[in-house]
Computed example of a mutant assay.
Amino acid sequence: MDTWLRRSAAAAFAILAGLALATPTASAQPPVADPDPFYWSPPDLAPHSNGDVLRARPVDVSRYGNADGWQILYRSTNSTGGPIAATTTVLVPRGGVDRPLLSFQAIINALGTQCGPSHTLFDGQLTEAPALPALLARGWAVALPDHLGPTSAYGAARLGGQIVLDGIRAVQRLPQARLGHSPVGLTGYSGGGMATGWAGALAPTYAPELNIVGIAQGGVPTNLSELANGLGSAPHPLFGLAFAATLGLEREYPSRVPVDNYLTPAGLRLRDQIANACTQQIIDDGAGHSAAEMTRDPSQVNAPTLRSVFDENSLQLYPGVPRAPVFAWHGTGDQLAPLDSAAATVRRWCGAGVPVQFDVLPGDHGPASVEGAPGAFAWLDGRFAGAPAPSNC
């Protein structure tokens, strides 16, 4: 499975490589609008500040424990500085004020907005759902942002970091949650780890007022350009995930990643099939296809415009560093997110004085996610308790 994921990621860059060969601008395919008007953006976003609550509603989260829940629509910012409306769902154990607040970035490999945690928490599709009762039992409030944003821009990692931070602001501004002065922790794995890492690195400048006490991230692909060096365009079982990532990046960078201009008829058909799909449909519809089949020329991987999009979403290349201590875990044989890039990112943060506990675990991407999670939650417990952060820098 993890070898498939590595090749699938490489295929994504093969698709993207052909996109900077010409200059016409295409129109990105948006997801189908959610029929629930709660998610609809009000027309007057500009006057609001990042993290302002636009609307909120209670939701039943009793399946996860003795907790109250709310969904919040709030103001955030996209990758070009424009205002957007984003969503988070917060679960709060009953009783108490200013409980520790954990922003949990779920893995969202999807192009439909219905695939985000605000939906999957309630339809049985959230992969990380089994962890929530134990986290609530610790006395923590847990917020799960839809960190791909209102267009489900799968692949746009920096955007995810901004949405995470503004989601925390929104939760702390919701009076009913009584979390206005809570210490904050961040966690996530793989794609959720990308949003977590970006939130941690952006926080000192983007949201310096937040009291983030710890950042636990695992299996993070920190350098997207490096992944492009492993191109592969043979038919692949998980090709759909790669293809979906190109469509997600097009949604966030329509003039710089004009996918439609370079797709073959087969590529256009697959685009239409998965434009509003969740993970399993994307995998099923894309299985056995390839970049060579779907694009006209996937050979120019070093195109400057394309590489600049990769670099802007590569945590290793972002000069900012977290202010809070970090716990990072990674598999020694991780073929999706290379260990070397993650280690280089940690070394740079260590060199800047960030306390980092970096645990390298045996195994590939999938097994490491399970093996590292208990240590991450135990580490966060220490940060919420105010204990000094360990470091093996």
Results as ranks from 00 to 15, higher is better:
41 S>M: 10
213 V>P: 02
207 A>H: 06
186 L>D: 05
126 L>H: 08
221 P>L: 12
32 V>F: 14
385 A>H: 02
177 A>M: 02
340 D>E: 14
297 D>M: 07
281 Q>V: 11
158 R>C: 07
29 Q>D: 14
48 H>P: 05
387 A>S: 14
151 T>Q: 13
121 L>Q: 09
359 D>M: 13
359 D>A: 15
315 L>N: 00
110 A>K: 07
115 C>H: 09
47 P>I: 01
85 A>V: 11
239 F>R: 00
79 S>E: 13
369 S>R: 13
282 I>M: 12
177 A>L: 07
97 V>Q: 15
189 Y>H: 11
340 D>I: 14
70 W>K: 01
168 I>W: 05
343 A>P: 10
373 A>M: 04
35 P>E: 11
208 P>L: 09
359 D>K: 12
7 R>E: 12
285 D>E: 15
114 Q>D: 14
234 A>C: 04
311 D>H: 06
172 Q>C: 08
304 P>Q: 05
252 E>D: 03
288 G>F: 08
231 L>Q: 12
157 A>F: 05
211 N>Q: 15
203 A>P: 11
390 P>E: 03
2 D>F: 04
185 G>Q: 08
262 Y>L: 04
378 A>R: 13
323 R>E: 08
227 L>I: 13
256 R>A: 14
250 E>N: 15
325 P>L: 02
129 A>E: 01
335 Q>P: 08
333 G>W: 05
326 V>R: 08
336 L>K: 02
307 R>S: 13
121 L>R: 03
50 N>C: 14
244 A>N: 01
353 G>W: 12
195 A>I: 03
57 R>N: 04
241 L>F: 10
382 G>R: 05
179 L>N: 10
103 S>D: 03
329 W>Q: 00
308 S>C: 11
380 L>R: 03
283 I>R: 05
362 P>F: 09
227 L>D: 03
211 N>K: 15
